[in-house]
Nucleic acid binder design. Sequence first.
DNA 1: AATGAATGAGAATTCATTCAT
DNA 2: AATGAATGAATTCTCATTCAT
Lengths: 199, 199, 199, 199
Amino acid sequence: MPKQKVDEQLIIIESLKLFRKQSYYHTSMADIAAACGLQKGSLYHYFPSKEDLMKKVIRTVHEYFKSKVFAFAYDKSLTPNDRLEKLFDAAEEIFLNEETGSLMGNVGVESALMVPEFAELVRHFFTDFFHAIKTIYLDKYPEDIADELAERSVAEIEGSLMFSRVFNDHSYLKNTIKRVLNRLEKSNVTKRVEMEKIN
Amino acid sequence: MPKQKVDEQLIIIESLKLFRKQSYYHTSMADIAAACGLQKGSLYHYFPSKEDLMKKVIRTVHEYFKSKVFAFAYDKSLTPNDRLEKLFDAAEEIFLNEETGSLMGNVGVESALMVPEFAELVRHFFTDFFHAIKTIYLDKYPEDIADELAERSVAEIEGSLMFSRVFNDHSYLKNTIKRVLNRLEKSNVTKRVEMEKIN
Amino acid sequence: MPKQKVDEQLIIIESLKLFRKQSYYHTSMADIAAACGLQKGSLYHYFPSKEDLMKKVIRTVHEYFKSKVFAFAYDKSLTPNDRLEKLFDAAEEIFLNEETGSLMGNVGVESALMVPEFAELVRHFFTDFFHAIKTIYLDKYPEDIADELAERSVAEIEGSLMFSRVFNDHSYLKNTIKRVLNRLEKSNVTKRVEMEKIN
Amino acid sequence: MPKQKVDEQLIIIESLKLFRKQSYYHTSMADIAAACGLQKGSLYHYFPSKEDLMKKVIRTVHEYFKSKVFAFAYDKSLTPNDRLEKLFDAAEEIFLNEETGSLMGNVGVESALMVPEFAELVRHFFTDFFHAIKTIYLDKYPEDIADELAERSVAEIEGSLMFSRVFNDHSYLKNTIKRVLNRLEKSNVTKRVEMEKIN
DNA sequence: AATGAATGAGAATTCATTCAT
DNA sequence: AATGAATGAATTCTCATTCAT
């Protein structure tokens, strides 16, 4: 059985799916191996440990968000509205997709509790998420408001994502994203920034 | 070790602390027993299994929130503003308290992934949380808006609570609570419900 | 199956036998458990790890030698000759006994290579061994000669013990012990310490 | 890494170094391969198994001692004293050399415990060692005394070699070798063989 | 010759749970 | 009520070995 059965990327993808569905600690290396059509020992060819595998998974998700989601925030060829819309459309698709799904919100936090190295990576992800959203808001709002709005948007999204999982109902996340988008659009019309300030 | 007499309640409290700090799956029955000054076998005199213990812990937290937090929402002797303020003050204190802390947001979700019975209990909790907040908003808003505002507030709070844990910084949750409270107060002044509608 | 099947001492004895026969690294916890009539998980009731078990085994052997072998060196009621003779008789019996046998010479050194904590314990043992022999020689020789004779005797004994194992022939050790004893006795007769000096 | 071309000899040398430093069982085929700049699969082009490799290592060391150490014992152009001195000088250099060092004393015994074929090879080595030393003593002593002196010298050397490793102090071996050499020299002067007899 | 993917057996260790005392 | 010995299944990880390329 020498023929290459898998590659690193496949293992990462399969791990991601399992971690999302079952949580990090309920996914054994044997589960992952089985999902890849391997014996458990074979995983250690690709990753020196389960922790190391998880770190690569987190980093992969992070990179994926950077290029497929956060990137829209920095695309100056788009209007701020379009940037936010495209960003959230992309995020929604990933979050609600069985395959890719949200790792950071649930599994990330769960495991970050116990493994400081995971926590660090999860923090990086959220910091980048904040930054992307804030960059869009900065087109219309001063620094402090952009900051607050970004923090708030990301918090709302992560909270509603959790509800979508717990209640097994996508509409929590979908409604939240709609709401956040409206918030930006409306500000175009009213021009009444002050009113928005603390809202 | 102050010789506290062991009873079901003590075990539940100690379990809660440990589950919060270490997550459900990283807390062994031996850990819990040690925290209670018992040997692990003795726990089985009080609870038939770890899952059963966890269920009792979740229910206890739920009951606690009902009587100490959600109750304010139904106290007609208070103004809506006061109701929300007292409710969130109480929630904040619990959430940011090392001892009691947030169980549902992290541990609940982690374990709910694998144990359907846990998920059911966590859903009950959030349903009650929603309901309490919505009840307050109903004093000022029509059904659909109250509903949305409640959903949004709880999502924001849970999201920011997650950030507070991941970044180890209480200010995420504190700021969010301040913001949610302001939102209600401001609506008193402006009376411009429409503006708030989708915001 | 609640009844006590074993105790710490039994596990230590069985481990010692197996370590001696198979070496530390070829003796699995499952082997030890089986020798004790236990499941392997049960060993962890008594010892937190295999390394810890090994340390207790080394210490037990050391204590045993202290009380059953080295003690003769300090028994002032005996003549030096008798002290050495009784000491070596006791040592020989232990070394050549299947059950107790020599741990330090072979297993100790093997494992000491990899585990510094084992090396430390093995050094303590040999230091005590030296000291006991030297104490006897001090009755007849000045410090420096006693020192050298002790070092040499212990080295000779350990070396011949290795041969006895490798060649599966007790006579190597037995002859060495006889020779070392003769050395002391002869010195009684000749009184020619100088001659012995470098011999 | 200086691109040394890999051949059987290189693998044997690198294995020897690792077996000495880490013991046979703590040296993996991957370790050896890495030391040779190979992948572990490649080792199997040179040696059918790890055991087979070890056997070749033991034989190589044995051959090396035969030609570089034991050979002096049979060099009739030298005086007995010179023969012994040169022999021990060569042995000391090898024993205390990080690269080559003692294999038989520790690793040999460790593995001989489990693999009878190793034990056989180690016995051959020691038999040759005995024989070389005895041959020198035969120049001055009758058969029985030469035999005993040889056995004793080798035992002393192996024992002190063990101490040198355990205590990480070369002087144990060095002093022993000095002592053994003195023993022969002195006998030249005194001519009092009887005195030496049992000493 | 060399690779490196894959295997499969086995290692140490953890842990919820049971139960005789 | 409490203990603590015992279990047995599961988990992560190691490693000598094989073999198609």
